[in-house]
Write a protein that binds this DNA or RNA. Structure first.
Lengths: 231, 231
DNA sequence: AATCTATTCAATAATTATATTGAATAGATT
DNA sequence: AATCTATTCAATATAATTATTGAATAGATT
């Protein structure tokens, strides 16, 4: 025991100790992300701050369980909190968290056959679901060739949205449908590639005779790529 | 049980099932990375293929244990194998693996105080260790203002190295030192920010009166950034 | 065909992660 | 000051991860 303190205080760190420490700390960060529910929470928080209650309800977790997962994320510095009245708002600790999540997501989509297969199967359940990626869409937006719908809750739209997009929360789309012109293709986007709001929107639009597509990615991906954002 | 099969085969996947599956698969990928030894292995394999034996010896693991970790990485499609005589060579499954590792590394370095602190403390043990990052270095290389030393094993240099760099494996540096001019600053680089070859090189060079720095990142980071590469 | 050897497997014990439950807490609101 | 409530904590049982050991295997080499 004394010897340990001696090493720590008086000897310089040796190479193996250094590597064990560094890779060990990074593994802790990775471990904090290595849970389905926590990944879903990170993906949600990419939209902005949410309360524990909202997070629990969106992810289908009990409040206590959501809270515990949030504690795990917080102690790894992946999320931060701010209080608002009785509520505590959780949000991502910074841009690097979303970057790491995106890198993991792409890794899964490219090398893990299950992920791609699951997404395709799910989309197939909606009939022929046309997707357009952010890069292609950015050109169409520039040329004003599409109507863009942000089908996330209005609060998220207000925090920032794709240039020229209209706020059309999915639960209002049915009622407001008649105001939409059929002259242009409609592109809906939402929180991310695993968010189903845009799928629901496209299905509804197609049912009413519109030409509709969804953006493959979500708003945070669009913003990260540096494409024009309003608000 | 029968009901389960019914759901799987005849009903389309519901939203919760879809999300559970997607985030679950991605969490598996993340879990495969969430171990200190496996992160070190990924970091090593970013240089190219290595045998189980070499990986075990470099990381200080038993062969059986290294093999098990490699199986974990392989079954998550993070690494692939190719046979060479009696040996099996492991290498990264593709560029996205390195991207994800880099994103995690940056995440740790920025938000986890322990990681940065450990690196700084370790470097401090070498005296005043000057670091230069790839972006700054790229300009100096372009203007031919530095002597660049690749202090990794020669085999790795041969697979690809920074434009204009000289191969100078760390264990040969002492003997070949006298051939190096003192007219320019010497910059050493190695496998990555947690590799100590470049630190050893800089320490040795400074001891002999050279002006020396290490590149903060490693060769794979240089290449990923699109800076000039030879071979 | 027999041998050799790098790698993998299987079994084990010890450690760590997880969801659930119900109680505790902190800090607004009244 | 008392009450209220969103959030956290603590305890628990179950499940998953890990390093070690020694045996098994696959596929080169002889």
């Amino acid at each position: 025991m004394l010897w340990l303190y001696f090493r720590i205080f008086f000897l310089r760190m040796n190479k193996r100790e250094f590597k064990d420490k560094v890779y060990g700390e990074l593994a802790k960060v990775s471990k904090a992300m290595s849970n389905p529910h926590r990944l879903e929470i990170i993906d949600l928080l990419a939209q902005g701050p949410f309360t524990v209650e909202d997070i629990a309800s969106y992810t289908g977790l009990s409040v206590a369980n959501a809270s515990q997962h949030l504690q795990t994320l917080k102690s790894s510095k992946l999320v931060k909190i701010s209080r608002n009245g009785n509520y505590i708002n959780y949000s991502l600790a910074g841009e690097n968290v979303f970057n790491a999540w995106t890198a993991l997501r792409e890794l899964g989509l490219v090398y893990n056959a299950e992920v791609g297969k699951t997404v395709n199967e799910f989309r197939a359940g909606f009939g022929d679901m046309d997707c357009i990626d952010a890069d292609q869409l950015s050109k169409l937006v520039e040329e004003d060739k599409v109507i863009l719908l942000d089908v996330r809750p209005e609060e998220e739209y207000n925090r920032g949205h794709v240039h020229r997009a209209i706020s059309m929360p999915i639960e209002q789309l049915g009622a407001k449908l008649k105001n939409l012109s059929k002259s242009k293709t409609i592109v809906a986007y939402c929180r991310g590639p695993f968010c189903v709001y845009a799928d629901d929107a496209v299905a509804l639009l197609k049912k009413h005779g519109y030409k509709a597509q969804r953006m493959k990615e979500g708003f945070p991906d669009w913003a990260l790529k540096g494409y024009p954002v309003d608000q």
